[in-house]
Amino acid sequence: MAGRQIRVNINGTDHQAIVEPRLSLADFLRHELGLTGTHIGCEHGVCGICNVLIDGRSMRSCLLLAVQVDGRSVETVEGLAEGEKLHPIQEAFMDEQGLQCGFCTPGFIMSLKELLDRNPNPSEDEIKDVLGGSICRCTGYAGILRAVQSAVAKMGGGRPSLLD
């Protein structure tokens, strides 16, 4: 199948690649670039585990084709920590046991990054709106909700009313 050339900025680095038009963004990131931190849970857009940020907005990388991000920027979980220093959301998940097996965690973290980048002090509804788009099978969401609260505090936002 004929390849198509794309240019895409991934976690701050420009990449140029020739990809098959049918290659999914998730497969491109994982198998062409080795960015395996983005995981695949269902490949039909329900579970949210493969969420990445495209130009700052969270999207399902399993439902996008690599050719669709030509000229755009993509952020994945690998881009969050600065060297040895974890991102505050990652710290918060660690502090509050917001993960167990950790397979869904990158998707949750990327969705929450979008939320907290836009709104450092989200309401309960806004938080649930984001978390409700993803599935975690291990935690029952309790640890994730605590982690959101902790991340909001770490990132300078006010205390959300969720767990008060």
């Binding site: 931190g37 979980v77 974890l86 998940f93 660690m94 950790g102 990158p106």
Partner: peptide, 23 residues
């Protein structure tokens, strides 16, 4: 006691190697 898990840093940064990450 509860404490930070030694498993977590690799999981949180996407570095844990699940089976589909192995080539």
């Amino acid at each position: 006691r509860g404490r930070r898990r030694i498993e977590d840093p690799a999981l949180l940064t996407g570095r844990t190697q699940f089976i589909d990450d192995v080539e």
